[in-house]
Computed example of a mutant assay.
Amino acid sequence: MTTPPVSHFLPQDPTPRDRGFAMPPEWAQHAATWLSWPQGDELWFGHLAGVREEFAELVRTIARFEPVHLLVRDLESERDARARLEGANVTYHHVPLDDSWIRDNGPIFITQGQPTTHNPPPTSLVNWRFNAWGGKFEWENDDRIPEYVAQFLDMPHWDRPEVLEGGGLEVNGAGVGLTTRSCFLTDTRNPGMTEADYAALLRDTLGVEKLLWLDGGLENDHTDGHIDTITRFVDPRTIVTSVAGDQQDANFPVMQKNLADLRGMTDLEGQPFRVVELPLPAVRLEGAEGRLPPTYANFYIGNGFVVVPQYGDPNDLSALDILRPLFPGREVIGLPSRAIIEGGGSFHCLTQQQPLGEPWSGE
């Protein structure tokens, strides 16, 4: 590995939108996927061995379809990863890490136009502040990850003072974004910011012309209800949203309210979305800190594939059957995530896509 070049720093003005940048949807063509190798048995409540086994299968699967950049905290992590990933298309990076949730602590990439093989657009990123979901865990090292990525890619970028996690926002690539009030409006992230403030911020930085709000997420989700654990765009006009089967479940009324709200929402042209119901796992899972938040909505979309978490639950196969027709041309793959969910998240939380493109020159 070589020391990455020093990247450029850009003023807040002009904004990414002024420069023609927007966040592409996850299904747009990728250059690579970024992940962070799990470490610290205490972070995984004694399940690290099982987590690494499942994580390695996730990395090997992604690497069959696109390059992987893997952050490793120390020599032990790299040795373990290399032993499990021998022969996989993986580039290793030694970076101080607090945890593995790069969806939230990593950069959000933006492009000038849609990423395609025949026309890779100029690519930049936004470096948001990260504070471990309102100061719940250690975060100082993870907050530096976007800057490392920008330096490695020699990519001019924007540094923002606001706290924002990638798992808290969904975009459809056609100007619409989805988020939750329970997450974005907490006082532990950006005190005093309103829905209107976020709408303006995400319009200027990520090209979100219309920001749609759901009320909340899953019970005992330490992210305060990230959208990527419950509701996802699968194309510009189609949304999958989680529903609970048990009316006595605390998640039932929240998910039903989300479902009703989504059915009343429209795109930029005023057209309603197609809304597809996706069941939550049927069996309640308990972890070291109470109820766990397993969900099939935390899938990850890549070049020619979708990986969907599986928990050894009666609804595992039903979730795959619902998702497969929604991703024509992609292989929908179920992978185990029973150990990973002990940390509170799954595949989408552990991944960050880098869209296909050339590093923007800054001009």
Rank of each mutant, 00 (worst) to 15 (best):
P281A: 09
G207P: 10
I322F: 05
Q247K: 14
P355M: 02
Y148I: 10
S318K: 15
G216C: 04
T241I: 08
L211V: 12
L259M: 08
D142S: 01
V306I: 03
F55N: 01
R338K: 15
I227H: 10
C349V: 05
L206A: 01
C349D: 06
H94K: 05
C183L: 15
T33P: 06
A81K: 07
T33K: 03
G216N: 14
F305V: 00
E219S: 13
A56W: 00
F152V: 00
L280G: 08
N303W: 08
D154Y: 10
I145D: 00
V126S: 06
Q247S: 14
D142Y: 05
E53A: 06
D246I: 02
N258Q: 08
R17W: 14
W158V: 02
P355V: 04
E165K: 12
H157I: 04
I145S: 02
G217C: 08
S36H: 04
I227T: 15
T229Q: 11
P355H: 03
G173M: 07
P5S: 10
P24C: 07
R160S: 03
L201N: 04
V176D: 02
D187L: 03
D261E: 15
I239A: 11
A31F: 02
Q354I: 09
G225K: 03
Y300N: 07
G345K: 03
F45V: 11
N131H: 13
E219G: 03
N303K: 05
E195W: 03
L43T: 12
R237P: 01
T186P: 01
P107W: 01
A88P: 12
G216S: 15
L259P: 11
T111Y: 01
L153F: 15
L356V: 08
D235H: 06
I341R: 07
R181S: 03
W158M: 01
V208D: 09
R181Y: 09
D246E: 09
L43P: 11
R324I: 11
T241L: 14
E162W: 13
M255S: 13
P11D: 03
R82D: 10
V283T: 11
